[in-house]
Simulated scan of single mutants.
Amino acid sequence: MNCRVGCGACCIAPSITSPIPGMPEGKPAGVRCIQLDQHNLCLLFGKPERPQVCSQFHATPDVCGDNREIAIWLITSLEQQTS
């Protein structure tokens, strides 16, 4: 599965504990990443400063569902189960 352009669920729903440029402490779950632009595209995509955890994420149907709203719900649910 390829990422849905403009989704951004993986940049909003989960917590990220590694530093992100502009967010040196990472980001809490449910908080929009500062590197997500107005079109829900990652400003760090393909750049070396992109956190490794972000680079390693792969969209899959069980995590991303059929649309953005389901993706946010699924990722939020996974976050709550692993916190």
Rank of each mutant, 00 (worst) to 15 (best):
I70D: 07
I16N: 08
P24R: 04
A71H: 01
G30I: 04
E49F: 10
D62W: 13
I34N: 12
T82D: 06
E25R: 12
N2H: 12
A71K: 00
P19W: 10
R32A: 04
E69F: 12
P21H: 09
R68I: 00
L41G: 01
G26R: 04
Q81W: 05
K47A: 09
C3V: 04
L44P: 00
E25I: 09
T17N: 15
D66V: 14
C64T: 03
G30P: 04
H58P: 00
C10G: 04
C54F: 06
L44W: 02
D62C: 03
N40C: 08
G46P: 08
T76M: 05
P28F: 14
I16S: 01
C10A: 10
I72C: 05
P51R: 00
Q56V: 04
G8D: 03
L44M: 13
P19M: 12
Q38V: 07
A59M: 07
L74E: 01
C33E: 02
S18N: 09
L43G: 05
Q38K: 14
N67R: 11
Q80G: 06
G6C: 11
V5M: 07
L78P: 00
V63T: 10
K27A: 08
F45S: 04
V31D: 03
Q80H: 13
N40L: 04
W73K: 15
P14D: 04
H39N: 15
A13W: 01
P24V: 11
M1Y: 06
V63G: 01
P19F: 10
D62L: 08
L36S: 03
E49T: 12
I75C: 01
Q35G: 02
D62F: 08
C33F: 07
M1I: 10
Q52F: 11
S15R: 14
K27R: 14
I20T: 03
L44I: 06
P21K: 09
D66M: 11
L36F: 03
V5T: 12
F45Q: 07
I12Q: 04
P14A: 07
E25Q: 15
V5A: 15
I34D: 11
G65W: 03
P61K: 14
E79G: 00
Q80E: 15
L43P: 00
A29R: 05
L43Q: 15
T60F: 02
I34M: 10
T17P: 00
G8N: 04
T17W: 11
K27T: 03
P51I: 08
N67E: 11
F57R: 12
A29H: 07
D62G: 02
F57S: 10
